[in-house]
Amino acid sequence: MDAHQRNVIPSLETAGSSSSFLDFVTQNNPGLLPFGRPLPAGQLPPVPHGTTIVALTFAGGVVMAGDRRATMGTMIANRHIEKVFPADRYSVLGIAGTAGIAIDIVRLFQVELEHYEKIEGTLLSLEGKANRLGAMIRANLPMALQGLSVVPLFAGVETASREGRLFSYDVTGGRYIELEHHSVGSGSVFARGALKKLWRPDMDAATAVAVAVESLVDAADDDSATGGPDLVRKLWPVVYVVTDDGATRVSEEALAAAVQQIVDRRMVEGREA
């Protein structure tokens, strides 16, 4: 009886979920998803792990930065990895944890947001985006229990507002609003300490980028899994600035200048930390 009643308006019944790419793929093509497959018992060989991501708000938006290192046990697996991505025009996400799954979750999340926008003709609200990301992390929980956890950091600007907002997650998909600044990954404790001292209300974008880079330098100083700026290879953190004008990647030149400034100052000071 109940089932019969629900079938009276078939299109409305499915309409609620049809704007979601995740729901569509889960129903029709579950093999494409990065998670959701049962893992057989066994020992997982070392796989690359992404490390530290920091994000902070400034007057007019939010900045997110991530170092470039992936580690596999005690070995450096990759020096060039990028762990901060634009999710859509007005939001970015960074990921720490098992790199292989994390990067696929990012791809899935990007398609999810674009899919919704194309089907519905409007952008999701920032809270809505944050909730969709939480659903994906929760779907990954069985994998997290096997040691393949992914912990993202999500930041964005609500369209038609100039206020940047941060969301952190735990492996169960729990979503938490963060104020001022936040960091995830193995170097996050050290980055957070630096952010607490460096962050000021109403910074401009350039200062916020410098603060983000300096907190990553501090994290790399104390955490072996976090890569600092590499002056020899000219490798800088990946930094995105999100304002009501959209998300833009900070140029290599600007980052090189910011890093050089930090290095020069610390050289002159010549202190232990």
């Binding site: 569509f24 494409l32 899935l108 398609v111 899919h115 194309k118």
Partner: peptide, 10 residues
């Protein structure tokens, strides 16, 4: 849109 997104994703 679904066809294109699934194809582009896979």
């Amino acid at each position: 849109v679904r066809y294109a997104d699934v194809r582009g994703y896979s």
